[in-house]
């Protein structure tokens, strides 16, 4: 059994009367990548801040690297790497100075920091930008620099709060690639995200958080098997017949049918068979698409399609 690095039991965070995290339990093992999925306001960031020892739990038990975060915060933080949701880079310093100054906050000797800085800038592909001011960097570069900075103390756990939110697709892929390499090297990752592809690619295990609690947990594959079907048939009808079609389709035996404003989704074992059945009912969709279920289907099923800020 691998070592438990973070253990939470009944972990709760309240701000006044608002409950941000409502009694969650989880164990994080060394070497795994653990993801928190959920809509905005589900309690992901509050959980990350408690694990980062910058927010004391209101109730419950939390042990990080075998220690109590309230009593031993600085000692635990010395062994964590944190990539916060919004960059907190030092804009008055250059790229290289950011790593130097941050490493000094950990009490590392300058020579060691310089050595690691060269490696880390290489790793995040910023070697040629070392002397630039942070302001001059693009959003993706700043994110990569933040990741490099979080690794300066060779942390036991790397905490990433929405590491790719706000990045363009190219920049996201570069960040994912770097995070994947870290995972391959055995770095323990905890991350929050609302990108399902990110979670699917990076996470060994994940929880879906909704309304301050866990709605589900498991590996990506387990979640898809448990909460969705193997395939999804997406149908689009002429707006005029959309509603009638939706009514008729209820006769077809799907595990679940979801009627959206513009599409109808059928969660089925075999998409092609279901499409044939739709046609047999005399319905001719404008377009049809058979695809495999993704985590996104699980996520929307569990957290609903309501819109939150």
């Amino acid at each position: 059994m691998p070592e438990v690095l973070v253990r939470a039991r009944g972990l709760t965070k309240r701000f006044g009367t608002f409950t941000a995290v409502d009694g969650i339990d989880f164990d994080l093992y060394r070497g795994e990548a653990f993801g928190f999925l959920g809509p905005n306001g589900a309690g992901k960031s509050s959980t990350m801040r408690m694990i980062g020892c910058v927010s004391p739990p209101t109730e419950g038990e939390l042990t990080i690297l075998g220690a109590d975060p309230v009593r031993n915060g600085p000692a635990i933080r010395a062994r964590l790497g944190v990539v916060p949701q919004e960059d907190t880079l030092d804009v008055e310093l250059t790229v290289r100075e950011n790593l130097l100054v941050y490493g000094r906050y950990f009490g590392l000797p300058r020579a060691l920091i310089r050595e690691r800085t060269a490696q880390l800038l290489e790793f995040v592909q910023l070697s040629d930008r070392g002397g630039d001011k942070v302001d001059a960097l693009s959003g993706g570069m700043k994110r990569r620099l933040t990741i490099a900075r979080s690794l300066i103390n060779e942390p036991d756990i790397l905490i990433l709060d929405e590491p790719t939110t706000g990045l363009d697709p190219q920049a996201r892929h570069v960040v994912w690639d770097r995070l994947f390499r870290l995972k391959q090297r055995g770095v323990t990752l905890i991350l929050t995200t609302h990108y399902m592809d990110e979670a699917e690619q990076l996470c060994d295990r994940l929880v879906v958080m909704d309304h301050a609690r866990f709605a589900a947990e498991g590996t990506p594959r387990e979640l898809i098997e448990r909460y969705s079907t193997r395939e999804v048939l997406e149908l689009r009808f002429d707006p005029g017949v959309h509603e009638q079609a939706a009514e008729k389709i209820k006769d077809i035996s799907a595990k679940r049918t979801e009627v959206l404003a513009d599409r109808i989704l059928l969660y089925v074992k075999n998409g092609d068979e279901a499409l044939a059945a739709v046609r047999a009912h005399g319905l001719e969709p404008l377009t049809s698409l058979v695809r495999r279920s993704t985590l996104e289907d699980v996520f929307l099923h569990l957290t609903g399609r309501r819109l939150e800020d």
Binding site: G73, P84, E86, D90, F106
Partner: peptide, 14 residues
């Protein structure tokens, strides 16, 4: 604005 202390307090600094 600078979020300097936020960054600093994520490290062992108190």
């Amino acid at each position: 604005y600078d979020k300097l202390y936020e960054a600093v307090l994520a490290t062992p600094v108190r």
